[in-house]
Design a protein around this nucleic acid. Structure first.
Length: 666
RNA sequence: GGGGACGUAGCUCAAUUGGUUAGAGUUCCGGACUGUCGAUCCGGAGGUUGCGGGUUCGAGUCCCGUCGUCCUCGCCA
């Protein structure tokens, strides 16, 4: 049989009697093919090549025989390593058929494994037996090829391929396995829908791009473990089946069979266990820990994610920051070959909110928020004066040079954008004219001398666009942060490949929860207040600052940690303030309160979101691309179709009965 | 829980204001081709337009519901 795939491959039945297409339809084919093919390009990977390199398989010698058996029985080399220096050698490669080009007298196919792609060329000298097998190969067939590494003819080198100077001239080809026509073809540049990619994840993961991202992830995790090992940290595994704790996100619950009606909770983080480890004397702990939070998803949020979790005893904030500074430098060096100068810059939370309106500012560009509340009070403009007199703030940003590019219509869009995404009631804006005057429909309401002062304070130059929000401090923060972020992207104020690392420190201990009408922990309830703020715990919760710190990379929170409370009394006072009853605290984490009584050392730590680090370092804008088997927005797995129903028997054993959600009345 | 985008061939996309038998590329099947390298050329097959209703002489297109994917607000100590 000529065609190996034949009927088994065909998903469609043959029907020779069907009417043909019109000649006109046939004619456009070539041109359309050219156009559609180049319409969509994949995003190029941005991390350096050396990340992708591996040592070649070692030769088997007398010394290592029987030890590291690198060479497998089915291959001698990978598809990524053959070069000119291998010319003349007889090798065996194994992999997937990436592309296939049958020219009759000559057949080419590219063989792919996770190390690279090598061309196999079959001419008459390979013999009809080999040619017959090669002719019938299809995409994603699995083959092993034995042959000689041969030079490509002059002028036929492929500079786009790492192995493009050589090709394999096979003496034999073994078909290891066929493949049904794949719904997702790893070799094509068109990216299928996310739905298809997630359903056939094993095919999506064959794409070199995905393999490179997962390799970067591996390198990063290994780099972290190596670094912390050198710093005398030890990795300890903490339980996945734990206890539900109040505060924080919704828990994923696991029913207990032995105690019907009781549930384990999957950890939102190993927080309590690592504190217990400090009390137990393991003064430097890390864990690459899986965490679970049953909250709605985002482009950068999965219900199940990985944290590099760290805790140290006998330390103050400086010690933790120092260790993480070193980690950042190490990772930037091994992944990006960048030298990061230490210590990383820092600012306080208050400063970050004042200057950037956000606790994780993107410091790759300026455009800081400027306060004009004092001028606004005397401006003659009612909105400004009102905000100023009612204890609010009037702040603005200078989108330098943006006056021309932003028409009245585009500014209206900005206004809607701000109104839709924050509580801000509107935007006040001015374009700076060539004579330096501020112009806008509202300008006539202002005293001219105040406008001039406002312009000076924002360092307005002709062609600048100034935008102001007058409202409470919080609202001006939110609105102007959104605007700053948007201008940063639209005006291309930074190189998207650049990296900026910094710390934000001294976060507030508490924030007011409007809904529940009580104080809530800004970080978590085990966070230590600054020593000077302990006395204010009850009298001025809003004024208490925590020994808390966030690592910010390119405007995203890359890590967050605190020094913990190691004093049972202080811990109890914080619980009291948070409205956690003594009885409830004792029930939920009495073990921690107990442990704190038995010689708890001063301790603190930090947790860093590994998935987001991969995202940032690989230049991806989607966390699913950084996780091998991610969940959809509804937290389902499209490949396994989890979550699924279970047997009635399992439910009975667990003492569980499902109450069907009631349908809304119509 | 709210707002938005999308859903058409295995895959990626078209289809005028609602108007004939829903078209391309790619994949797939058959054929040609001795230097190709998302090969090219010739021929062919492939559709319950996510699903269910409704409006209409007529619905891929308009309306309602529902399912799915994505973005986003809330939420995520």
């Amino acid at each position: 049989m000529r065609n190996v795939g034949g009927a088994s491959r065909g998903m469609l039945s043959l029907n020779d009697d069907q009417a043909g297409k019109s000649p006109a339809q046939r004619q456009v084919r070539g041109e359309v093919a050219f156009r559609t093919r180049f319409l969509r390009k994949r995003e190029p990977m941005r991390f350096p090549r050396h990340i992708l390199e591996w040592q070649p398989f070692a030769e088997i010698t007398d010394e290592n025989a029987g030890k590291a058996q690198d060479k497998t029985l089915l291959r001698t080399h990978t598809c990524g390593e053959l070069r000119k220096e291998h010319l003349g050698q007889t090798v065996t490669l194994a992999g997937w058929v990436h592309t296939h080009r049958d020219q009759g007298g000559l057949i080419f196919f590219n063989l792919r494994d996770r190390y690279g792609i090598t061309q196999v060329a079959i001419g008459p000298e390979q013999g009809e037996d080999v040619a017959a097998i090669a002719r019938d190969l299809h995409q994603e067939y699995v083959v092993s090829v034995t042959g000689e590494v041969a030079p490509r003819p002059e002028g036929m080198l492929n500079k786009k391929m790492e192995t493009g100077e050589v090709e394999l001239r096979p003496t034999s080809i073994t078909l290891l396995n066929k493949s049904a026509p794949p719904p997702l073809i790893p070799a094509t540049p068109e990216l299928p829908s996310e739905e298809t990619r997630l359903k056939y994840r094993y095919l999506d993961l064959r794409r070199p791009e995905m393999q490179q991202t997962l390799l970067l992830r591996h390198r990063m995790a290994k780099g972290m473990r190596d670094y912390f090992d050198e710093q005398r940290f030890i990795e300890v595994e903490t339980p996945i089946l734990g206890r539900s704790t109040p505060e924080g996100a919704r828990d994923y619950l696991v029913p207990s069979r032995v105690f019907p009606g009781n549930f384990y909770a999957l950890p939102q983080s190993p927080q309590l266990y690592k504190q217990i480890l400090m009390i137990a004397g393991y003064d430097r702990y890390i864990q690459i820990a899986r965490c679970f939070r049953d909250e709605d998803l985002r482009a950068d949020r999965q219900p199940e994610f990985t944290q590099l979790d760290l805790e140290m005893a006998f330390v103050e904030m400086e010690d933790v920051l120092g260790v993480v500074d070193g980690l950042v430098a190490h990772i930037a060096k091994i992944l990006l070959d960048q030298d990061v100068s230490l210590p990383l810059p820092r600012m306080t939370y208050d400063e970050a909110m004042e200057r950037f309106g956000h606790d994780a500012p993107d410091l790759r560009y300026g455009m800081e928020l400027i306060d004009v509340t004092d001028l606004a009070g005397e401006s003659g403009f009612r909105v400004f004066e009102g905000a100023s007199q009612s204890g609010g703030r009037v702040r603005g940003i200078n989108a330098s040079g943006a006056a021309e590019g932003y028409s009245r219509k585009k500014i209206d869009e900005l206004t809607e954008f701000v109104q839709g995404n924050s509580q801000a009631k509107g935007l006040v804006w001015f374009k700076v004219e060539t004579d330096g005057k501020l112009a806008s429909p509202t300008a006539k309401n202002f005293k001219p001398e105040v406008l001039e002062q406002i312009g000076q304070r924002l360092e307005a130059k002709p062609g600048d666009l100034l935008l102001f929000v007058a409202d409470s401090f919080d609202v001006t923060c939110k609105a102007l942060h959104l605007l700053r972020k948007r201008f940063g992207e639209e005006l291309k104020l930074y190189d998207p490949r650049s990296m900026h690392y910094s710390w934000v420190v001294e976060f507030p201990m508490f924030e007011w929860d409007e809904e529940e009408n009580r104080w809530a922990a800004k970080h978590h309830p085990f966070t230590a207040p600054r020593p000077e703020d302990i006395e204010k715990l009850e009298s001025d919760p809003a004024g208490c600052r925590a020994v808390a710190y966030d690592l910010v990379i390119n405007g995203s929170e890359a890590a967050g940690g605190t020094i913990r409370i190691h004093n049972a009394d202080v811990q109890q006072r914080v619980f009291n303030l948070l409205g956690i009853e003594e009885e409830q605290a004792q029930e939920r984490f009495g073990f921690l309160l107990d442990a704190l009584k038995f010689g708890a050392p001063p301790h603190g730590g930090i947790a860093l979101g590994l998935d987001r680090w991969v995202m940032t370092f690989a230049g991806r804008d989607n966390i699913r691309d950084c996780i091998a088997f991610p969940k959809t927005q509804k937290a389902t797995d499209m490949m396994t179709e989890a979550p699924g129903s279970v047997d009635e028997r399992q439910m009975r054993e667990l003492g569980i009965e499902v109450r069907k959600p009631e349908k809304a009345d119509k």
